[in-house]
Design a binder for these strands. Sequence first.
DNA 1: ACTGATACGGAAACCGTATCCCATGCCCCT
DNA 2: AGGGGCATGGGATACGGTTTCCGTATCAGT
Lengths: 362, 362
Amino acid sequence: MSQRKASGDAGRATIRDVAERAGVSVASVSRVLSGNYPVSEDLRRKVMKVVRDLDYVTNAHARSLAGGGTPTVAILINNITGAAFAHVAKGVESAATLRGWLSLVGTTGDDPERELALVNLMRQQGVAAVVLLGGAYDYDEYQLRMARFARSLDAAGSHLVLVGRPPLEGDVPATTVDYDNEGGAYAMASHLLSAGHRKVLVLPGHAELTTAQGRLKGARRAFEAYGVPFDPGMVRHGPYDYEHGYEAVEEALEQGLDFTAVLAGTDVVAAGAMQALRAAGLRVPEDVSIVGYDDIPLASQLTPQLTTVHVPYEEMGRVALRAVADRREGNGGRRKGSDGEHLVLGTHVVVRNSVQPPGRRG
Amino acid sequence: MSQRKASGDAGRATIRDVAERAGVSVASVSRVLSGNYPVSEDLRRKVMKVVRDLDYVTNAHARSLAGGGTPTVAILINNITGAAFAHVAKGVESAATLRGWLSLVGTTGDDPERELALVNLMRQQGVAAVVLLGGAYDYDEYQLRMARFARSLDAAGSHLVLVGRPPLEGDVPATTVDYDNEGGAYAMASHLLSAGHRKVLVLPGHAELTTAQGRLKGARRAFEAYGVPFDPGMVRHGPYDYEHGYEAVEEALEQGLDFTAVLAGTDVVAAGAMQALRAAGLRVPEDVSIVGYDDIPLASQLTPQLTTVHVPYEEMGRVALRAVADRREGNGGRRKGSDGEHLVLGTHVVVRNSVQPPGRRG
DNA sequence: ACTGATACGGAAACCGTATCCCATGCCCCT
DNA sequence: AGGGGCATGGGATACGGTTTCCGTATCAGT
């Protein structure tokens, strides 16, 4: 009999369908469901029964249009299969879920264009925050692009969070959650030096990657502190992957480079290095010691188990979400001045079995 | 001067702001932006200038309320840090991006309640499809719960996709993308048997997990085919993690179990098993051979590199998305009958260095 | 029994966008 | 020159909720 939408339930039940069938007003249904208004027990029962019968769920789009809606956080990641990033994502996701927030994940594939497109997409979605994960390339343009993102998101009522990247310069409305990258590298290199190693092959990562720069710098500082001259000829740059670790060591051996330890920029690089040493007939750690960075599960699954630097990835994710949640719920008034927050979490060396004092060789 | 919203741009620019400032109607702005309607070059210029000035982006919620909007696919995953799942997610995500779709990720943590909550959340979001990842526990309730999800999503115009799980029984509106799990296990076990192994420690996984069941079944079939009696006493069930692999082997050795090879249900389990063997002074593969399953990057990063079964995770993700995209774009009319699609992708053994014919020991 | 407070239901005004329908202006054809 | 057709732009409405504003029914107090 009803005029609109021939009674068959094509598509999805609306709040009106529920109201009609329960014989109450639309407003009443809304109130029962959101529960932010007193409602009689009788009404609640009537409505809830129909809701169950129709398997009704509210339309999130309509709800957020009308002002309500669940806050959403977007995680932008270079490569979802990277173990370290996955842990940050897990931290963000679990903290978000805890508060009833929703989380989106997008992958950029290291492509600035895609990054831009995704940030805009997230702006359209009206996300509460955009979390950018992973080390960044230190090109001139980077600071400008990020600053633009930050302002653009801020203007739209959202917020930019940088995780595992250096903070932005100037007065930019962005939060940074970082770890003591350089300090970890310093401690790791010190560990090798104090074990007696002096000739160390260093594989910090891409020269332009901010994390690689920090790790190299920390290592240099350790050498200085120990009064050991740092030989730039012992540094090999390259991507953070297994192949680079393998090839760098293979090449170093072919060139007859003399080293008793490998300081890898990443656990995965360390794994590749380890494999290359084995292929050359060298034992780890008897002939050559190896250390990594990140402390992903792989580190403890290698043989021997890898001594490495623990980075609290999951906690960084949780901290990042907490930061944006606080900012959104806490301070209604003051906005300026408290922007540009920078949180730094600690790192520490995890000693396992891949380091020994230098032996017969070298 | 304007009455509404004191002209300062608090919050976010709307299409009305753009229209007003460009001196045109709201409809014109919408048309310029969506570009599905002829518009004069003059108008386009005027509008686009204001859009850039205001850094305007359309409100995705409003857009999808009004009928348009980007299709979204939701990926529900047990644990985002699992390497295998991450690859499926990558496949889904990349295929989604390719078509301009958006993708959401939610983690269930193996909790049926959370799974239910997430499916409902996704229903609210009006997602085009929900992709459920990973092996399922074969409890009686499982089939019913999934069937309910499937119908519920279907009624809301969405669609359920099961990836890496067995298909649902009966006429349920769900798509399944699966791999030849049992076949892979059969081939893997055959590989060991043809190398001469007869006493094999089997670590298939949790007894109730569907993937573990399939892998165990495949192994048994291989033993039968080779005319080798299968000893149930050589099977150890447990979770798919490193610790289980380690402890199961450790225990087996303590019990004096006699075996020349380990058939692990997962590469990670194999890694644990390998470590336990080493700890007991046994060499791999000289004393004991090991094989895994999944072919995640870890497999080729272990020493020795692991012989394992390749599962096309990323492709499964792509196939899953393609299936829902086709269904949504392709057939407008027919819906019934073509439901319950079941796609199976092949697996194959990847031979590396962790298997040798049984040697002196045993 | 009457008044005032209180609790709850209903109508209507948005939220921001897409689109349907119509009005207008211009060009072209006869 | 007048009328038909096409190319454009504008106004109104729908999408599915939430929320404000009011009106009424209910209850307690005296």
